[in-house]
Design a protein around this nucleic acid. Structure first.
Lengths: 352, 352
DNA sequence: GGCTAGGAGGTGATCGATCACTTCGCAAGG
DNA sequence: CCTTGCGAAGTGATCGATCACCTCCTAGCC
């Protein structure tokens, strides 16, 4: 509403007032340009008096190093590219916050790219970026085609393809499906014996991860062959899955791969006359804010997206600067839990 | 799960295989470096034969222009900065998608920054960015302090502070509160006469915008002094607001500033024994996916975030390249609606 | 034939920093 | 007294493009 929006400074001011160069600073300080350069790079071997003179000149002229010139000479751009999926319908910005935090902490600036299309398209884009020499590294927050790992015979840029998929659902070491194990174990303690997992779209690595953990856990607990119905994150898919269940000996606990899917499960259960959590316990994933206001309130998994982003960029930085690998360790060590389960009203003891 | 994650190319390959320069291309093509430069810049006045020779040399050497060197000479970085709020809990990535789309369409790369703290901190950061000469423009997707508009006496970079606030809720010309008017009018047609608006946090421009439109519309329709209760986007605040209403002649329609707030309203109404939409109609904002699964399903406002982002960057580009201002017009003209109301079960005729 | 116009391409300077050497000055050691 | 060593600062080359200006050549015209 206020008119503070859309402000442009007069372009002429911009043009004629050029920033001072290292030479001008040198002249003002009565030293050589190289001495100024030393000052900028914090070279230890300078007389305090000289340092002071340069410092003053820098301040008077409001000098700032031209990073373009610097990076031309040093052949280091100090930039990393982050590839974001273009079509993310879900995908918290906190992940990007975490990414930027770590990048800036290590002196990198972040260039954002988005890319439409298939994983193959993305792969091509990443190659291009890595090959362009514009950036030192590429962090792909969208999945690349399976097996593209070894296929980066490119130049300067190093690629870390993080384990995220199109919807920013984390998988792999960063955010694996392990909470599924906790969910199943706890529900088993509550007496549940027949479990069902309604998956996300299985071309998503995270969906596969959750399914795999589910299957492994159910079998480990000796709860018979795991029941899995493939779906696609949507409520409709989960809804249909519930309707397809047999009336007799139907599952009493459903692990959905998303909150939206869980909502579909609840809807389907209602239509079949099953009460929740009386006849059926349901869990979701994502901690959607409205989950606490569903009827019943929804048990879900909360994901610390910022931490996810931090870990991803820490990995890239560690690859770029092996000597700073300590950073990555530190990052890994700073673990509070990445995922926490929030138990609410949609889960309860198994029906007797 | 797959081991395609975290891949680093051998650094030595990166180091020794330097990209060919314009000079090497020139030598290979048997022309001068300047001719190669002409070829790159698509200079019209070249003999087709020469063009072919250069083209072949470029391909053979897999040459690509060093953009750092170019931008050093041309003094144009081709980069714009986008300032993202660090703490956004809500804030769809589609907005960033839209921003990047338009930037890339116009040949800019996008540098992402986030910033913690107060609007004043952000303002300082924007100044710094604009002043650094690193970027040609800054797009602030977080609000700056009121009145900071005229205070950018900086160099090259031009600043457009878009009308977004900490939670990416759009306001102003891009996404004003006008859907509020439609909501109120339609509900009035359904017989409602006593309206209540539960605001978002009023330091957010978008919250103020929605409130202002609400007040204006209610008064225009002659529905008496508008009833407004200040809240903060949260469910708790909205919940408390409902509990504070009088039993007699309470409002029959509540416009909440967010879906979460609407959920709080619904909860409060339940506790008071009011049915929805029988005794009370409720509307939200944001089109949270779970809104369709609340009891009752939630009427809400869907916002086209990608379009929002496109419009914002189009504005910046138009400022940077006034001659291309056509772009902005085109962007503005390509309007499907930015906001659409989704009517669902939480709204209905006024109680008789 | 001579002169001009303009197409096509070449030459050298330049952008603003860092790097690799060189130089200067002073003190310690032989 | 000369040499050596080293701290401190200076000189010139360099990164890879573009810009400004110059040269060459040929066609066209009087």
């Amino acid at each position: 509403m206020a008119n503070e929006s859309s402000t442009d400074t007069s372009t002429d001011t911009a043009t004629d007032r050029r920033r001072a160069t290292i030479w001008e600073v040198a002249k003002a300080a009565g030293v050589s340009h190289q001495t100024v350069s030393r000052y900028l790079r914090n070279d230890a071997k300078m007389r305090p008096e000289t340092v002071a003179r340069v410092r003053q000149a820098v301040e008077e002229l409001d000098y700032r190093p031209n990073l373009t010139a610097r990076s031309m000479r040093t052949r280091r751009s100090g930039r990393v590219a982050v590839l974001l999926p273009a079509v993310a319908t879900y995908g918290p910005p906190q992940i990007l916050s975490g990414v930027m935090e770590v990048a800036h902490e290590h002196g990198y600036t972040v260039e954002a790219f988005s890319v439409e299309g298939t994983p193959a398209d993305r792969f091509e884009r990443v190659r291009e970026l890595a090959d362009s020499g514009q950036v030192e590294g590429v962090l792909a927050l969208a999945p690349l085609p399976p097996g593209s790992g070894g296929r980066f015979p490119e130049r300067a840029a190093i690629v870390v393809s993080a384990d995220y998929d199109d919807k920013f659902r984390g998988v792999g070491e960063l955010a694996d499906g392990s909470p599924v194990e906790d969910l199943v174990v706890r529900l088993a303690e509550l007496g549940h014996r027949r479990f069902l997992h309604v998956t996300g779209a299985l071309d998503y690595a995270s969906a596969r991860g959750r399914r795999d953990v589910f299957v492994a856990t159910v079998e480990r607990l000796g709860l018979g062959p795991a029941q899995v119905i493939e779906s696609d994150w949507s409520a409709e898919g989960a809804h249909a899955a519930v309707l397809s269940l047999p009336e007799k000996d139907h599952p009493t606990a459903v692990i959905a791969a998303s909150d939206v899917g869980a909502a579909g499960v609840v809807l389907g259960a209602r239509e079949r006359g099953w009460t929740i959590p009386g006849d059926l316990s349901v869990t979701g994933w994502d901690n959607n804010q409205l989950g606490a206001y569903l009827e019943p309130t929804l048990t879900t998994v909360n994901v610390d997206h910022r931490k996810l982003g931090r870990a991803a960029m820490a990995r890239l930085v560690a690859t770029l600067q092996p000597e700073t690998a300590a950073a990555r360790e530190a990052e890994a060590a700073s673990d509070g839990p990445l995922n926490t389960i929030i138990w609410r009203g949609s889960t309860g003891p198994a029906p007797s």
